[in-house]
Simulated assay, not measured.
Amino acid sequence: MQFRLLGPLEVESSGGPPGSLVDLGGHRQRAVLAYLLLQANQVVSTSQLLSALWADDGAPMTARKILQNAVWKLRGVLSRPPRAEHGPELLTRAPGYLLRVPPLHVDLLDYEQRVVTGRAALAAGEVEPARRSLGEALALWRGPVLSDLVEEGICWPELTALQNRRLDVMEDHFEAALACGRHQLVLPDLESLVAAEPLRERASGQLMVALYRCGRQAEALAVFGRVRTALVEGLGLEPGRELHRLQQAILTQDPTLEVPRAVGGRGAANLAPVLRPAESPPAPAAPAAAPAPATPTAPAEPAAATEPTGRTEPADRAEPTAPAKPAVPAAEVSSPAGTSPVPPAWSCSASGSARNWARCRPRTGTGCSTR
């Protein structure tokens, strides 16, 4: 037998024609079976079953007898031929009952196993297997869980929890699909989910990304405006930081929002200039007010090695801050004897900075032209 809870309660016989459903009896029997299936392969106490069947302490004096009759009739339904080797069994186990059924025969258990597999793949970065597994899990849903019993007045906390967990699984599926570049495929489902659940920020952010990738930037920003209005007016809260950062990324057209395959197919773009150890720019015509930082090495030794007059005074004897007053041009500053950074028998084509000494050339006379 195949048991389906993700939608109206259905039990399909394994020996009959495809699609043939088993008659489960009245409302009470179907409710008992549904609650035992929600706790499949676990012992459910009698008190739990009584609370599920009669809420708000409205159980009659014969409630236990009614429950026992429902269990007895269900055993007759589950034992109908043909009997499979590992068919379902409804057993009495203190302090209540146990419905033993293979996990693959219950759509809820199959769904939960696929979700575990998909989330493990998503956490490992295997987005395509995660998308497939999570999509297969969601495909098992045929509507709201146990929708027929809900219409008859059943209201169990387990059903609400299942519905909320389904929304989380849908968001995981959307995340995997967006990581695979399938934004157009999930866009209709994202729009439907956000319209039904306007306070779910994660889904709203995923919709903003999908719309942006489809070239609908204005609509993506409008989604942020709607979710912000819903949060502020409904709860007095601002959207979280992630949603605010996503809004700014859309406004600035951040490349990280592009389709992952397109980004991965080209080299990473440098959004900020890279500082490289290149040469310093040429000195300005007028010296700056602040003294220039000293260079690590003074390139004056080559000039001393080729000096025709035989003078070998090293250049590192120069004072680190030669111009005493930066506002005065270098040509008008007189250097004490023996401390001039440039030998008097040489001519310079630029100011006396260490970087331009290599352009000095020998000339006759004792002066040094600084222009």
Rank of each mutant, 00 (worst) to 15 (best):
E126L: 13
R166W: 11
G367M: 09
V227R: 14
S45E: 06
C360E: 05
S349N: 01
P17I: 07
L257S: 07
L138D: 01
G236E: 11
W346H: 02
L33Q: 10
E219S: 13
A52N: 06
S14A: 14
R228E: 11
A322E: 11
P157V: 08
R93L: 03
Q206A: 11
Q184N: 10
A286Y: 06
Q113R: 15
E175A: 14
P362E: 07
P284K: 06
R64F: 03
V342F: 06
D23V: 03
T46E: 13
Q253M: 05
E151K: 06
R363Y: 03
L78E: 05
V71L: 08
E128V: 13
W72R: 14
L237G: 01
S335H: 13
G19H: 01
W156P: 00
R93A: 13
P239K: 11
W54H: 14
S14L: 04
A285K: 05
G265L: 11
L235G: 00
V263D: 09
P17E: 14
L134D: 13
R261G: 11
A358L: 12
E242A: 12
A298M: 12
E171D: 09
D189H: 13
V342I: 15
S45Q: 01
A315H: 09
T366H: 08
R100T: 03
R361P: 01
E307K: 00
V115N: 10
A123T: 13
L207D: 02
A84R: 10
N69Q: 15
A195R: 15
G87R: 00
P329V: 05
D23G: 09
Q29K: 10
E158F: 01
P188F: 06
R261T: 09
P341I: 15
P287S: 08
P95T: 10
G236K: 12
C360F: 02
T312M: 13
V263M: 15
R317P: 02
A278R: 02
H183N: 07
A268T: 04
R213D: 12
N356G: 05
S340C: 14
V11A: 08
E191D: 07
V44N: 04
S45M: 03
L74A: 05
A31M: 11
I250E: 02
L149D: 10
K325Y: 11
P284N: 07
R202S: 12
L167Q: 14
P260T: 04
R363M: 12
M170H: 15
Y212F: 15
P281S: 09
A327V: 06
Q163Y: 01
A230P: 04
P284E: 07
V22S: 00
Q247S: 03
E307L: 09
R317I: 10
S13L: 10
G264I: 02
L74R: 02
A324F: 08
E175G: 15
P273E: 08
P336E: 07
P18C: 07
A70M: 04
R361L: 14
A176P: 13
P95G: 12
V274Q: 03
W156F: 04
E85I: 09
G352L: 11
R119I: 08
E279Q: 11
V259D: 15
I250L: 02
V209N: 01
L99P: 06
G19R: 00
A269L: 15
T46Y: 00
H183A: 15
S334E: 12
E171T: 14
Q163M: 10
P296K: 10
T366W: 05
V194P: 08
A40G: 00
L162W: 13
P302G: 01
D168E: 14
A210F: 13
V101F: 02
R4D: 00
L109H: 01
